[in-house]
Amino acid sequence: MSVVIAAANLSKWYGNVLGLNDVTLELEEGITGLLGPNGAGKSTFMKLITGQMKPAIGTVTVRGRRVWNNPEIFQGLGFCPEHDVFYEDVTGWEFLTGLLRFYGYAKSEIAERAARALAVVDLTEDKDRLIRGYSRGMRQRIKFAQAIAHDPDILILDEPLSGLDPLGKRKLIRLIKEFKNQGRTVLVSSHVLPEIEALTTRIVLIHQGKILAQGDIPFIRELIEAHPHQISVRSSDPRALAARFVGDRSIQKMTFGPDGQTLVVETHKRDEFFGRLTGVVLEAGLEVEEISSPDDNLQSVFEYLVGK
């Protein structure tokens, strides 16, 4: 497979704040997920590869062509911005046909492409309504439609699933996969792992402007598994519970919460611990009020990887 988007030693500052730090990355055809918490640098990276920003250091190319101030690349590139913003006083149809004007198509082709894009995102019936009156899901879909209406072979989607209900997410995931099945390139960002998992197995992890890791889902899962998990168990007798786990090799550390009713366990083997916990609780006849995992989120995985 050929390299579609290439970034070499890419860095970007916002004044004194580092937005992206020495990123070198090559993206090939298919779907690549850009995963990172809010403020990780995902949008900065996407703005750099869509020519909305100029790199402070390094280069970025799309199919070997420079991006900054090179409008020609947009003939084959579609971008779906993160923000929920539109020209609100136009209808969905006017929005699409208006933007399609910029590709030099004849009027009939503009109408044809707009109609096709609206049909793809199931908005044909609502095409004559003002965007101001669209629901959040419809707005996300019309935003996606403007990115695909000119039939690009590269699609850059910044948090496209954000704010969608489960049904809306499923629809959009299906559309993105269909797009990829036509042999095109998609870069999609998200801060939610399951969203990216539903789209692709190829993931780039980004945090604090740096690429932490890249690989397929099992590789990322391994990294997540290696991350020591905190599990908090609130019970009637946390000390008795702790006594039962003292000799357990799956546990690295145990502390008691400030309320005196909570045992906080740190373990690398979360599943093994949960397997034993049930048995121990039943054996000792303890009453468990709550089990939670305060750091079971992507942010803590990133923090762990950064520390590593």
Binding site: P71, I73, F74, F79, P81, H83, L99, F102, Q146
Partner: peptide, 15 residues
């Protein structure tokens, strides 16, 4: 201000 600039500068037209 309206953040709609992205719709314009990601088109194949000179700025």
């Amino acid at each position: 201000e309206n953040r709609t600039l992205s719709y314009l500068i990601t088109r194949p037209i000179p700025k």
